[in-house]
Design a protein around this nucleic acid. Sequence first.
DNA 1: CTCTAGAATGGAAGCGCTCCCAGAGATTCC
DNA 2: GGAATCTCTGGGAGCGCTTCCATTCTAGAG
Lengths: 336, 336
Amino acid sequence: MTDMPRRRPTLDEVAERAGVSRSAASRVLNNAPHVSRDKREAVQRAIRELRYVPNTTARALATRQRGVAALVISGETPAIFADPFFAKVIVGASAALEEADLHLMLCLAAADRSRQRLAELLRARGVDGVMLMAVRENDPVLHTARETELPVVFGGRPAGHEPPWYVDADNVGGARRATEHLLARGRRRVVMICGPLDTQVSRERHRGYREAMILAGLEPLPPASGDFTEPSGATAMTELLERHPDVDAVFAANDNMAAGALRALRGAGRAVPHDVAVVGFDDLDIAQITEPSLTTVRQPIQALGHETARMLVRLIGGEEPSPLILPTRLVARSST
Amino acid sequence: MTDMPRRRPTLDEVAERAGVSRSAASRVLNNAPHVSRDKREAVQRAIRELRYVPNTTARALATRQRGVAALVISGETPAIFADPFFAKVIVGASAALEEADLHLMLCLAAADRSRQRLAELLRARGVDGVMLMAVRENDPVLHTARETELPVVFGGRPAGHEPPWYVDADNVGGARRATEHLLARGRRRVVMICGPLDTQVSRERHRGYREAMILAGLEPLPPASGDFTEPSGATAMTELLERHPDVDAVFAANDNMAAGALRALRGAGRAVPHDVAVVGFDDLDIAQITEPSLTTVRQPIQALGHETARMLVRLIGGEEPSPLILPTRLVARSST
DNA sequence: CTCTAGAATGGAAGCGCTCCCAGAGATTCC
DNA sequence: GGAATCTCTGGGAGCGCTTCCATTCTAGAG
């Protein structure tokens, strides 16, 4: 080793080299006022020459700010997290955090142990704030959320609990429009495949469906429910076909299940959209590669992540933002 | 507010309440020896009563250990990251880190700004180690990796560079077996759809294909290449059909592209597997929901994440683990 | 020319924890 | 019985940075 294993330089060394006090050097670092031009430049030069980088941990200890936000995904992770939905949310959140110069800590809180660690992370002030995505009713993580003094923003409201800060998509409106779209196409036997009933999204999308049906003077039919996966959509569709052989349209609470429905319909020999029209929800990539391509309700998933993070940043900054509901819109393709 | 906004308790307060010194309290906390039974219990009681939780940041500053590992995903994030592949890798890595009581910092290093922040994070010792996933040849992140003194483990080798520590799947072997499987089924005009040529996986899977063809005394055909997405697979397949109208089998470098190939074949009126057999790679969920379901090479994606993280943990712990190549295996379904 | 407000400056006290070390007691062993 | 060896114990020095505050310097006001 030609160069000795020299420790990374500290602010003291920078100060010494620049011939100023540590306080002055610190001021330069945070570009605070009350530093003369000369000294400022001297410090900057020293920083450059020493390749100095401030130690985040020390700074965090002194300022009580960690520079990190947690994004929590609870629920059965391998299954749920594999949904590309979360990938997009994370991309959006990551971008927003970056603007505020925060880092992203990803917490998969499925097992008890994981939840435990999350709770400790918050109590130990390991992060500056928390985003809770897709929390379900009675999710244990809600207790942790209630207990912490840290800012918490929900991405999607949990069922049965209106948190002070959340960002959500207009699920009711989207579902209503999806159903209305089917009705406008002349369909009358419209059924629905909804998601797990303990999620708010499921309930809301179901509500939108009911509203549209009732508004049209039709009787809403009892939904079949899946778990947001493709196979569960196929199963639900099969069940619905048995229950209502004369069905002429189906609205699925997400694209995966809609894709499953398409498969089941094909298996049952029903032509889409001729015999049965299908609408999904989300507008994930899959909606464009099914055959026929899927009419669906687009929700701005990346924006959901982005806005959730932005709201958290504001909260951390001491502001008091209001909850936000993002618009959804129908994208018509070949399945209707 | 009935309860005053009391600060969170510190170790000093715990010590005081337990009637011991801070050193003793610290020893109890880290259950180190040299603490009498009485004092130990007194401290534990105080901790309980005060609901004390040690401040991670202070501890990190004192021990020079952050308790955090970074998982870096470079490349065009919205596109790449949406691949369920990464979700699984993350689930695996997260589980392994949890065992070592480390937290996971997720860094999407697509834009320059993001890479810059990553570099600073490392220089500022914001994490204890780094996992670099799916790095491409000439990826700027390689430079950052080379510069840091922190432990770095690669998940999948970058092309043209053999890092000291990595975990990878047996791509060559898997591709060879896939091709051999097709040949064993009596296919002779076997073509390949490969991925971007600047990735090591693509090259290796292509190599496996070539090896199998040559071993069988056949001339490997020049591949068409896509970008690992479904549509690109369809395009590539169409191109191959034009180039080799008599093709009777195709091996795609991943399942998404294989699904695209299936779609293109259906569009071209070729029956699968009767006219053309198809094999994919990965064994993602999609392989089971295509029609026909996809014969594919399963790679242990979650294990890849898990082992990458475990290797990093060892490295952080001062061990010197060896690179690891995980086995892949053929899963036969209906497309062959 | 004196007075005073404001800028510049560095000393020093934290932030909350770990860990080295020296001293006190308890044990062991010849 | 005394030396040698352990276990306990708490004092105190960091870890590297921010920030309060008292002091000095500068310059404009009167």
